[in-house]
Simulated assay, not measured.
Amino acid sequence: MVSDGTVFAGYTIDRQLGRGGMGSVYLARHPRLPRWTALKLLNQELFSDKEIRARFEREADLVAQLDHPNIVTVFDRGVEDDQLWISMQYIDGIDASMLDPATLPPDRALQIIGETAAALDYAHRAGVLHRDVKPANILLARSQSQERVYLTDFGIARLRDDSGHLTETGSFTATLAYAAPEQLTGVALDHRADQYSLACTLYTLLTGSAPYESASPAAVITGHLQSPPPPVSPRRAGLAPNLDAVMARALAKRPADRFSSCEEFVAAAQRALRTGTTGARPIARPPSGAHGQPFVAMQPMRPVHVPGTPAHPIGAAPMAARTPAQAPMPAHPQMPPRAGAPMGLPQPGMHPPMPGPAPSGQGWGSIFGVYLGLFAGVIVIAVLIAVLSNM
């Protein structure tokens, strides 16, 4: 603890703003500039823990590389009297855990989550995972014009491609109520773990409790790992049931089943609330590439070759396309063809296509054949008359 009025690393301490598991945050006056600074100090009793110190220093190094309007800026870091410290941007306001979900409009909750999603996607593109997204780490700045949202506390963040581990095997530091299943099982993480935590945060802002909230840590872990995502609409009157499908996808157990980004998740949630759509994945096309229904004026597609049947050479037309196509007769003037029907098919009021002309013989061979047939017919008739006369 640092008392008020103390000068620490050149900063004059005004008062304590908060305290967490790793350290405390103080409001301090900058030693040279006329501005307030949030000064974060590592708990002195943890200074000898190399793992904790490495994580604390990593926070400053990671966040100092991020320049985004929704991420708290880191100014400086150092060591003073065997105590690590970080100087950060001071946000005059509250954190999202202090909001009352009973009176928080859903649109405002989505606006808060939306700005947080923009910060997360920016960090992910820079290769940084937050790994501890929760309401307490979302700061809301007071402003006369509009609310400003900041994401803070990258204390356990790490680079995706970093092979070093700052936590011992089996240890877990993220807040349990908002942890993705893959964080609980110790498998490799990617940006979709932060999306899961962001969805848990939205669930809390809308309902007042986390999806798998329980007094038993084992029950919370079981919920994240095994229980289906609980629907959000029954937990608060007036929420669109379409939102349940969006939340279920963001809270999917498998990262591959979630949205591709945090902002895509938020956009789907906004559509569900405002237009009634669910934001679910589009229906996949059949493997052949054919459409589920015909399109007007669509050209014939080459059929897919089935094993055991003769295949057309590459570039060859289908059988139906090899015979000369006949153009349909014009539609009856008082019976126009149906709109949206496939071209080339007979419609009510439309004459069917005229049949093609019969093949005509050409050359002396064809004429000789005709005379030969007539001669044979005359002989057969004469024989029949002779037989009948003798009877």
Rank of each mutant, 00 (worst) to 15 (best):
L62V: 14
M98I: 00
K40V: 02
A311F: 04
D107I: 02
S197Y: 02
A252K: 10
Q44W: 05
F75T: 00
G356I: 00
F295H: 09
R148K: 15
F8I: 03
G5Y: 08
L206F: 08
P324G: 01
H68A: 02
H351L: 00
V370N: 04
L239T: 10
T222S: 12
R258L: 06
P34I: 00
I379A: 15
P287S: 12
A119T: 02
A280I: 03
P234V: 02
G365P: 08
T275I: 09
T152K: 07
P286H: 12
I94P: 03
Q16G: 02
A250D: 05
E263S: 15
G18A: 14
G373M: 13
R77W: 05
P333Q: 08
G308T: 05
A193K: 10
A177D: 12
T37N: 03
I314S: 08
T201M: 10
P333R: 12
Q299H: 08
A102P: 00
Q362R: 14
R274G: 13
R249I: 02
T185Q: 13
T169I: 12
R302M: 12
A269F: 00
P357H: 07
L17M: 15
P355W: 00
K253E: 10
G315P: 02
S145D: 11
A177R: 13
P336D: 00
G114T: 10
P282I: 02
L27H: 09
V246T: 15
G10P: 03
D162Y: 01
I71V: 15
S233L: 11
P286T: 09
I71T: 03
P294I: 03
H312K: 08
Q326Y: 01
V306N: 13
H312Y: 11
A177K: 07
A64L: 14
P303K: 14
I112P: 01
G308N: 09
I283S: 07
S260K: 11
L345C: 06
R148M: 10
L27V: 04
M301T: 11
K40W: 07
P318I: 07
E264Y: 02
D49V: 13
A9G: 03
M298L: 11
A341T: 05
Y122P: 11
T6V: 10
P337H: 01
V72H: 06
N390L: 09
S87L: 01
A199M: 01
H305N: 06
I94M: 07
R160Y: 10
